[in-house]
Design a protein around this nucleic acid. Structure first.
Lengths: 228, 228
DNA sequence: TTACAGTTTTAGGCGACCCTAAATCGAGAC
DNA sequence: GTCTCGATTTAGGGTCGCCTAAAACTGTAA
């Protein structure tokens, strides 16, 4: 109500809320208080209070007891943070010897501290990449984001060959494990066997045979050769 | 009193206070409340309150109504911030096309957000420099700092030739002005004339003749050729 | 249709930091 | 030695963002 919402008048907390809500509303379905609380590791009342403030600021649409969605303004601010985060991750991996499993938490802090200028300098140094080291698309400076269609490995048919294009995972340990198997964006895999009812998937990559569980097979997004 | 003081449990504010007090106590003379307040652009009561908390935390030695000094612990934390700040400035200038007049405010925010790991990665990428773009010495990771003896240009005798080794100035406009005159670390200058009573100094550098006022001549620290 | 289980919000508090106004201190002028 | 003025500290308040406990709501299940 008081001051106009300029990009950098948002606090660290507010930026985190917006980013979380963005992540929780991929198909436009509203995010619940408890989902947000869980993602940010906060209590539900804390979230409830902040949500109220943010909707008064015009960043959220809140239907009490129903859920929360970003307004156009909130979405813009959220995408700005996503761009920052993904460019920072890309930069740290490319120029400062970070690995994809350690880069997340560093970016998580830096994204609140960098200036727009610095972000754009990093983007330029990287040659304006369209995806980050996990294959996540990087929004443009004016807030456009292009989610390429991709199929979870868990859903591929036996015999299909595909390229891993994206790994939707932040947990360092899991990422480290996937890296040891060579399962990173760019890797080519062939499905040798898939057990039903969420069972493991057997794949071949780099001439080796791997068996991976459902949980991991769901975060590995693939582009099937024919579709490209 | 409650928790042990680990390096990264310090808030942004606390880090700023420690850095300010470090800057204000170069010769061990205690810093006054109002000096700190002025440097941090805060009210005196705010500083008074924070000083109290920090001395209870064991980071400061406070004699009420007299002044404040850093304890060994506080000094260590302050030097850690100084190292971060100066390495970040160096990195941004070297790799991300920052100029010495714009780099300060960016570093001022980043220094609170980077991890020790990132700082050391930047140091390595830079080849472990001993000074930053302004010629300020960079403390080592274990808190040693070596202030090289240097003489303000304002104090040099007529006829003396010296090398600028350090420019003690944060103001972007002044730095930009000095850069246009070529007065940066590494520049060689000869004093042609010095007016008494804080009057201007006439110097020659790069084959050009410049007249600079006392205020600027005081921030340009020089190493006289013979002394090296 | 009502009751209950789970979710969400309200109520009330707390710590970190900031502020202004008022009280207190200390050092030089007389 | 006292007075007085500037510096400092204390008093009291406010915001942000978090918490726990209690109240209110919603949707499902008997």
């Amino acid at each position: 109500m008081s001051s106009p919402i300029t990009a950098d008048s948002l606090t660290r907390s507010v930026e985190d809320y917006l980013k979380a809500i963005y992540r929780l509303t991929p198909q436009g379905r509203p995010a619940s208080t408890s989902e947000i609380a869980h993602l940010l590791e906060l209590s539900a009342p804390s979230v409830s209070g902040m949500v109220k403030r943010l909707s008064e600021l015009g960043l959220l649409e809140h239907l009490p007891y129903k859920g929360v969605q970003l307004t156009a303004e909130g979405r813009r601010a959220a995408l700005r943070m996503v761009r920052r985060h993904r460019l920072i991750e890309s930069y740290l991996v490319e120029f400062l010897a970070y690995s994809w499993d350690t880069v997340h938490q560093e970016a998580e802090r830096l994204e609140h501290a960098v200036s727009d200028t610095l972000v754009e300098r990093m983007a330029a140094a990287l040659g304006h990449p369209s995806v980050d080291p996990h294959g996540d698309p990087i929004p443009t400076a004016d807030g456009a984001i292009e989610e390429l269609p991709a199929t979870p490995l868990a859903v591929l048919e036996t015999g299909e060959t595909a390229e891993i294009v994206r790994v939707v995972e932040n947990d360092a340990e899991r990422l480290r494990y996937l890296a040891t198997l060579g399962l990173k964006p760019g890797a080519t895999i062939t499905v040798l066997d898939r057990q039903p009812f969420g069972g493991p998937v057997t794949i071949e990559t780099r001439g080796e045979i791997q068996v991976i569980g459902q949980a991991l097979a769901l975060v590995l997004l693939c582009a099937v050769g024919a579709h490209r």
